[in-house]
Amino acid sequence: MKILVAVKRVPDTTVKLKLKPDGTGVVTDGVNFEVNPFDVIAVEEALRLKEKAGGGEVIVATIGSKDATQQLRHGLAMGADRGILVVNDDDNAIDADVVARTLKAVVAKEQPTLVLVGKQSPDGESNQVPQMLAEHLGWPQATFASKVVVAADKASAEVTREADGGLETLSVRLPAVISADLRLNEPRYASLPGIMKAKAKKIDEFTFESLGVAKAPKVTAVGFFAPPERKAGAVVASVEELVNKLKNEAKVLG
């Protein structure tokens, strides 16, 4: 079974990001980058499906600067077989649609049985790429997966999704696009021997041109600004004062 996993280089989710003074984006100097944690879950699921199928290939692909090679290496160190980098030097110059069309071109080259992706990335939080990709490919999609079971004949998969009211189980024909939610699995660490082996694994590089993808975003970022800082709260001396403030200042009581 051939599985393509799309991964994204994102700023370390535990650090507090700062905005550039001119509002054109966030400061990336001195910030550590990692693989989108949802994508790590997608890689783990792909590896498990391959192990269960007793063979196949897991390919990790990303669209990003050359630095994103590091994130591909992370996937390779976990156990993926090879990587694909579509070089893009300006993240703000592409949108979810360009990403989805680029991945479609990669899918056309690789012909995987399954595309696995994280449900969203913690930087843009747009949660659009998996859905758009499925649409562009004309493939079924199952988003927010918390369980994936591929049928023995590899013609379909049963996907449990976490919906608001409970769990929903879908059956999708393969090939399909599945997006991973937090509880799909607990990803393995990139082991030390795995990290060393990853050095020798192949990463193919492409450009938008070489894939025949028009770098024409439909959505562009106009500006970035921080939410207004919350004002400090006030301590009131008595219940009467509180009721008075709620009535006359906040006007939430009649």
Partner: peptide, 14 residues
């Protein structure tokens, strides 16, 4: 090196 960082990050997370 990228490998050294990855090793450190793995062990840190562990």
């Amino acid at each position: 090196s990228p490998e050294e960082r990855m090793v450190r990050d793995t062990v840190r997370a562990f």
